[in-house]
Amino acid sequence: MLALLFDIFWTFFIIGLFNFGGGGAMISLIQDSIVTTHQWIDAATFTDILAISQTTPGPIGINCATYVGYEVMHAAGYSGAIGVAGSAVATLAVVLPSFIVFFLLMKIFNRFHNDPRFTTMMSALKPATAGLIGAAALILSFNIIPVEGSFLPKVEIISYNFPDWKSGALFAGAFAATYFFKANPIYVILAGGILGLIIY
C-alpha cells in the first residue's frame, strides 16, 4: 500500500513538473501516465472522471488529480481512509513542483522571461502541448493498436465512450457549441447529460 502511494506521489510529481499549458495539458499527462503507462485505471473510468472534473468547481487539473488518486487506490482494492490518502498524495504531488520551481527561480524569473532561450522553449512547448491534448482526445475515442510489420495501426472506436452515431453527434454538437459559439462548457456538459437521459 505504501509502495503504491509512493508510486502515485512520484507519478503525479513528474506530471506537475512537466505540465506546461494548464488543465488540458495536465489531463493529457494524467491520461498518459495513469491509463496508458501504469494502467492503474482504464480509459472508461478515466472518461467518467474527466466528465466530473469538468463540471465541478475548481481547477480541472486538481479535480482530476484528486479523483484519480482516489480511484487508483480504489481499483487496487483499498477504500475509505486509504482512498482519501491516495487523493491527498496525488493532489499534493501535483502542486508541489510549482512551488519548488517558483521558489527556486523566483529571483531570476523576471530576467528569465525575456531570455531568447526561454521564449524559444515556450514557442516549442505550445505546439507540443496542443499535440499532447489532441492525442489524449484521440486515445479516449479510439483504441489504436500497433500492427506488427505494418505502418498503419489497427484503429477501433472505444464503444464505452462512443457506442453509436448519437454519441458522435453529441461530440460534434459539443465541439461546435464551445468552439464556434463560445458556449459555457458547464452548460454544454450538463446539456450532454440531460440529452443522454432522453436519448438512451
Partner: peptide, 11 residues
C-alpha cells in the same frame, strides 16, 4: 453516456 462524448469534445 451523454456526458462522455461531450467531455472528450471539450478537451
Amino acid at each position: 453516456q451523454g456526458l462522455r462524448p461531450v467531455a472528450i469534445a471539450l478537451i
